[in-house]
């Protein structure tokens, strides 16, 4: 395995009541790489993310993080602590906390029980939160409850929370859902900026958005990789056209 490998999935399968959600899936994500994963509903995109983040255990196969960390033995919190950040399809923020607190809670810091009990907010942390608020354009809403934000603002806040974690790998599930065109483009831009420093895996339906990302695309179908390469390359693949794009 090369030094450059961030995430390595090999022969991963997982079934639910006989239904194979993931079927012998293999995938390599390199450090700093951005990857778009597309596929029809039920192709196994969400289950793949669940497996990477330790929410679901694969029945068979290896999931290796970095050099040699076995992700199949890690839970959600463990994967987050290793540096995997996840953004959900449906924006999930802490609705009864303020926007600012949402970010504070996400900042990379001691996650232990007593560490948080005796935690005192540092100036560096305040500065970082200000910076993030600015980046996701929520400075004016910093004292509002996250539950009062609009759908698009919640998406932004969640992206901000993801960045606050300073993860090595970002798993982003349909970030553009519910955003205006302008916001979508801004999101794509933001993700492009992030890539390079962090690895990013984006699951998306919106082809315009994928095109705007301008990265390597992997097409999932029935829990396995159907094709990968540039968007133009996979778009030309007759199998892909048949199962997904052609419809």
């Amino acid at each position: 395995m090369s030094e450059k490998t961030q995430l390595y999935l090999n022969g991963v399968s997982r079934s639910f009541d006989g239904f194979k959600a993931i079927n012998n899936l293999s995938l390599i994500i390199e450090r700093g790489e951005m990857r778009a994963v597309i596929g029809p509903n039920g192709a196994g995109k969400t289950t793949m993310m669940d497996i990477i983040t330790g929410k679901t255990r694969p029945d068979t196969g290896e999931v290796i993080w970095g050099e040699d960390t076995d992700l199949t033995k890690v839970d959600e919190a463990g994967s987050a602590r290793l540096g995997i950040g996840r953004k959900f399809q449906k924006p999930t923020v802490f609705e009864t906390h303020t926007v600012e607190d949402n970010l504070h809670l996400s900042l990379k810091a001691d996650r232990s029980v007593f560490g948080t009990l005796f935690h005192r907010t540092t100036d560096a942390e305040r500065a970082r939160v200000d910076e993030l608020l600015d980046l996701v354009r929520l400075t004016a809403q910093r004292d509002d409850l996250a539950g009062d934000l609009s759908h698009g603002q919640k998406q932004w806040l969640e992206i901000g929370m993801l960045l606050a974690q300073d993860p090595e790998l970002l798993l982003v599930d349909e970030p553009a859902a519910g955003m205006t065109d302008a916001e979508t483009m801004r999101t794509a831009e933001l993700l492009r900026d992030i890539a390079g420093k962090h690895s990013v895996v984006v699951v998306e339906h919106d082809m315009e958005f994928v095109r705007a990302l301008g990265c390597k695309v992997t097409v999932l179908h029935q829990g396995a990789v159907l094709a990968d390469g540039s968007l133009d390359h996979v778009s030309a693949n007759p199998e892909v056209i048949e199962t997904y794009l052609g419809r």
Binding site: D75, E76, A77, A80, R86, S106, R111, T116, Q165
Partner: peptide, 8 residues
């Protein structure tokens, strides 16, 4: 969500 932020 809290788990995915790394809190046990």
């Amino acid at each position: 969500r809290t788990r995915f932020l790394g809190y046990r």
